[in-house]
Design a binder for these strands. Structure first.
Lengths: 184, 184
DNA sequence: AGCGAAGGCTAATAGCATTAGCTTTTAAGC
DNA sequence: GCTTAAAAGCTAATGCTATTAGCCTTCGCT
């Protein structure tokens, strides 16, 4: 019988498809194996465990998020860059709420490397503010926390009526931006 | 043999103890039953399913959070009230990171009622700002998002070096407060 | 005392991750 | 082209999980 020709990357692809269709909780090795047309234990030739697979998924999601963010920030600066990044971030979550949910419920050393990309992009967007050291850290944390908090609540439908959510987000980002020193 | 004398409340108590000691992932009906000194299926006399138990746990956590918040806001107004609420919220998460993690990975209709308490407290803290309708909604969402985002990232150790985190939080809350119209 | 409900039990089922060990395919080197 | 060894698949088995069914016992009330 011909081989399925799996790789770790393809296994992650399949897991992502399951997340998109049925949510993060539906990601089991059985489900992935069924999609791959393979017996469950065969997956262990490509991933060490379910835990490793979910970690790889998280890294993939962070990378996708970073790609969108990077594209949004490129060629912009100051408030413009920050707002574009914030919108790109939220756009990704709205397009793929399951993926973001899958991402946030995993933590590991490997993951922090992927997460660093998101921080680096924030720093890049903040560059024109000329913040140094501690000031840059505070600004980055504030931006991350505001964006992540808003988008997380929205993804689980936590805002109740979906009334004027765009405007609420715009204002929150405006509060963060307004609390920064003026760009040089 | 004497009965264990369980109630749904006690079952939730035991689940909370497991969360505090071993994290949310360790909450299984087996583990709870072992702690209760009872066979696993006996728990079904008190909770309908594991899903219901985790939901009850989330509601309990939200209630505890609301109690702390209520106490913090009582007798304060304006910026003072908002900062006290923000500090109480974060204090709870620092005291019980596992509980907060357990809370955020559950969503259901029953839960939104408990979540409404947290929103009501925010509205109360905002009262002296005299915000009406849409303005109050935007302000509440911004506050929730900022607080929730920050404490969530902190709870998973997402800020890397634990350097000056108090100050970062203080500044973020300051950004939100600074973006509100002045209290009347 | 007796009766019914509530709270406990054991046994059984089904789904899950994981490990062990075997077989087949594939690709590389001669 | 043949050999060979690693890579990639398989089946079988283990042990954990939630859940259901059906039974027994304890408790509270009359």
């Amino acid at each position: 019988m011909a081989r399925a020709g799996l790789t770790p990357e393809i296994v992650v692809d399949l897991a992502m498809a399951i997340i998109d269709e049925h949510g993060p909780a539906a990601v089991t090795l059985s489900a992935v194996a069924a999609r791959a047309g393979v017996a469950t234990p065969s997956l262990y030739k490509h991933v060490r465990s379910l835990a490793e697979l979910t970690e790889l998924v998280s890294i993939r999601v962070m990378d996708q998020l970073a790609d969108r963010g990077f594209a949004a920030v490129a060629g912009r600066s100051g408030e413009d860059a920050l707002r574009a990044y914030a919108d790109a971030w939220r756009g990704y979550v709205k397009d793929h709420p399951g993926r973001y949910a899958a991402m946030i419920q995993t933590a590991s050393p490997e993951l922090s490397k992927a997460g660093q990309k998101l921080i680096d992009i924030t720093l890049a967007a903040l560059r024109s503010y000329g913040l140094e050291g501690e000031q840059a850290i505070h600004a980055t944390r504030a931006f991350r926390a505001a964006v992540h908090g808003f988008v997380t609540i929205e993804a689980v439908g936590g805002f109740g009526l979906p009334y004027a959510i765009d405007e609420s987000y715009h204002r929150l980002i405006g509060m963060v931006i307004g609390g920064l020193p003026k760009p040089v």
